[in-house]
């Protein structure tokens, strides 16, 4: 590997379609692969894509849609669901000396605790950031990376961090390219041998169908019947809105309100 080329690793999971519940490529992970592919195409950084989990036929179908994005190879650490993948992934990322790990924030199935990036970062003693939409710049000589992070209200924040690093991709990142069946057929899934005896067991918790969450009711702490009656029947009426009839004054009033809300 050339010294000024990064070793980029994308971690991908098996997604689940929210309606049909069929296995598919996970939306966030596909965005991570898209980002990785862009890096590989624009600056010839080296990209490897890795999945950890049991290689069932359903999983193979979902993984092939990542291959269909134009990958030559997808590595699979074959680990049964009752074992913890964290330490296996840690060892793998360490062994291939990856400088940049790109992954989704949260899985689409399973307990979706979104803990994996943090556990990996802790085990590897490297920084982790969440909600990334874009890589702005990679400074190889100083081993710095500049990122764009999604904030509520469509705002973006710029963050600079030191490599190696784990970044988790937000749904606001660039949409992934389509998966092509032809490309999926030409790519290959390579199993990587894992020492299963060293892995911790995890308790597989039963998944129950989500029950409907109760809606919050308006609490009425009225003491008298009259108050209760009023609270039950009162309509949300005009909350004292101001009316202005002159265009010039009106424009000024709007302008002042926007100033007051710090939008101008």
């Amino acid at each position: 590997m050339l010294p000024n080329k990064l070793n980029v690793t994308c971690l991908v999971s098996i997604g689940m379609h929210p309606l049909s519940r069929r296995a598919r490529r996970a939306e966030q992970d596909a965005r991570a692969v898209e980002l990785g592919l862009n890096l590989a195409e624009s600056s010839q950084h080296q990209l490897s894509v890795v999945h950890a989990g049991e290689l069932t036929s359903e999983a193979e179908f979902a993984l092939s849609s990542y291959l269909g994005m134009g990958l030559d190879e997808l590595k699979v650490l074959s680990i049964p669901p009752q074992l913890d993948i964290t330490s296996a992934l840690t060892d793998y990322v360490r062994s291939i000396k990856s400088n940049l790990v790109i992954m989704g924030q949260q899985t689409e199935q399973g307990d979706s605790s979104a803990m994996l990036p943090y556990l990996l970062a802790q085990a590897l003693s490297i920084p982790v950031v969440r909600g990334i939409t874009e890589i702005i710049d990679i400074d190889n000589t100083r081993q710095h990376i500049t990122l764009l992070q999604a904030l509520p209200r469509g705002q973006r924040r710029q963050i600079t961090g030191s490599l190696p690093m784990i970044i988790c991709i937000d749904m606001a990142a660039k949409a992934p390219r389509q998966s092509a069946v032809g490309k999926a057929l030409s790519g290959k899934i390579t199993p990587v041998s894992v020492n299963l005896t060293g892995l911790d067991p995890v308790a597989v918790k039963p998944m129950l169908t989500a029950t409907v969450r109760p809606k919050r009711l308006k609490l009425i702490k009225a003491k008298t019947a009259a108050e209760r009656f009023k609270a039950a029947t009162a309509k949300a009426t005009n909350s004292g809105g101001k009316l202005v009839y002159d265009p010039q004054q009106g424009a000024q009033a709007i302008y002042d309100l926007l100033k007051q809300e710090k939008l101008l």
């Binding site: 689940m16 929210p18 307990d111 129950l208 989500a210």
Partner: peptide, 12 residues
């Protein structure tokens, strides 16, 4: 009780 799998499941 925690929500999981895109809000489709609960786990205890």
């Amino acid at each position: 009780t925690c929500r999981a799998s895109q809000g489709l499941s609960d786990i205890k």
